[in-house]
Design a protein around this nucleic acid. Structure first.
Length: 184
DNA sequence: CGAACGATTAGCT
DNA sequence: GCTAATCGTTCGA
């Protein structure tokens, strides 16, 4: 049994990812903030049904879904539920731990606290590209291993959406200074 | 075919 | 707190 059980609902998988170590080519860190999205969720890219852009969300669980945000940023998701469903978890922030120099170089002048504090920043720091879509998240060049520490997970409304804005599907590591925003 | 709109961020007030 | 940057997708004429 895979420790993260990506075949289950995204809102069940999402809190399990808090504390896990995510890397791409050895660069990354501890996941401190995520959001869940589902097919029956008006805020989700998969809500209108399969399209060329969101095709990976309807593929096998445990794979990567990358999308372009605001025409500028690459954002990283892990596909959940059974193939054909259309659910996933957006990785919103990491505590940077591995490949610090590569992340600092990619992120230019950003302070360490801001290296991976937001989905676009995670994409830039790890070197996420559209071509990563469809790859398994727990095999090279990616790496994902369960948390080696006990974590306290908090939750709240998702950020930056207009529909289903009250659904508490944002999850974070309590008290982390590497969040994109504080939880209330 | 034109227009509007983001699962955002950086920089300035 | 406010807004420009920037572009693929979606929607109305």
């Amino acid at each position: 049994m895979h420790p993260f059980r990506f075949e289950e609902d995204a809102w069940l998988v999402a809190p399990r990812l808090i504390g896990a170590i995510l890397t791409l080519d050895g660069v990354g860190g501890r996941i401190v903030e995520v959001e869940a999205y589902d097919r029956r969720d008006p805020a989700s890219h998969s809500f209108p049904g399969p399209t060329k852009r969101n095709a990976a969300m309807f593929g096998p669980p445990g794979r990567v879904y990358v999308y372009r945000s605001y025409g500028i940023h690459w954002c990283f998701n892990i596909v959940c539920r059974e193939e054909g469903h259309g659910a996933g978890v957006l990785i919103r922030a990491l505590e940077p731990l591995h490949g610090m120099e590569r992340m600092r170089a990619r992120r230019k002048l950003a302070a360490d606290r801001l290296l991976c504090a937001g989905p676009g920043r995670v994409g830039e720091a790890l070197g996420i590209e559209l071509g990563h879509t469809g790859m398994p998240v727990d095999a090279a060049p990616f790496g994902l291993r369960p948390s080696d520490v006990t974590v306290e997970v908090v939750s709240g409304p998702r950020i930056g959406i207009s529909r289903a804005a009250d659904v508490p599907w944002r999850f974070g590591l309590a008290g982390s200074r590497f969040l994109s925003r504080r939880f209330r």
